[in-house]
């Protein structure tokens, strides 16, 4: 699990970052910085010759996503929908994903209510929606290749796209979700509990 540290940035750089922030690519300075650090780290690791698998493990939690405590992530797509999937941490506990079942397109879901199930060979794992809205897209690829959830949880392995109810509630709901940093803490706490 990665450690968290405070970083100081030069004043002139902050101004530059604020300019970028206004374009809307990043939501906060810290997000930009962590992204920058992530990229730099990746570069360093590549130079050091650390294997891809190890690198991926160290950088498993992408910074631009928001998380629920029930291990689903949310990402805003260019069309303004919310893309939902399971986190890398969840994926590691669901090695044998055999089937992904979700509510059909057009179904209304509420925040933190189950909208589907990931079925492994031995048990079922409920998926909780990070926002309330209507399901507009279901990842059809998962029908034939449910293992994509394991192979690429943040990319090809997304599960549904939800069209939010309205922008006001959306903003509130997004605020209440966990940031990568909070999620990281939550996971380490859980890990501790699991080890016990």
């Amino acid at each position: 699990m990665s450690e968290w540290k405070t970083v100081s940035i030069r004043q002139e750089l902050i101004k530059e970052i604020e300019k970028i922030l206004r374009t809307g690519r990043y939501r906060s300075i810290s997000e930009f910085v962590s992204e920058a650090i992530r990229l730099r780290l990746e570069e360093l690791m590549r130079a050091e010759g650390i294997s891809t698998a190890k690198r991926e493990e160290l950088l498993a939690i992408p910074e631009q996503l928001l998380y629920t405590p029930k291990h689903t992530w949310a990402q805003i797509t260019p069309e303004g929908n919310i893309r939902v999937g399971v986190s890398d941490y969840a994926q590691r506990h669901l090695r044998g994903v055999a089937n992904v079942m979700t509510e059909p397109v057009g179904k209304e879901v509420a925040k933190m209510e189950p909208f589907g199930v990931v079925e492994t060979w031995m048990f079922m794992f409920d998926l909780y929606s990070p926002v309330s809205g209507k399901i507009v897209k279901v990842n059809e690829k998962l029908k034939d290749k449910p293992y994509l959830v394991n192979e690429d949880p943040y990319g090809e392995g997304w599960i549904v796209e939800i069209k939010p109810k309205n922008s006001l509630t959306l903003e509130e709901e997004l605020k209440s979700l966990l940031s990568p940093r909070e999620y990281n803490k939550w996971v380490s706490k859980l890990e501790g509990r699991l080890r016990e």
Partner: peptide, 17 residues
């Protein structure tokens, strides 16, 4: 029927089985 479980429960469940 397959049980609906969270990870913590799933681990204990597997060990029990």
């Amino acid at each position: 029927e397959k049980p609906h479980l969270s990870f913590e429960e799933a681990k204990a469940y597997l060990e029990k089985l």
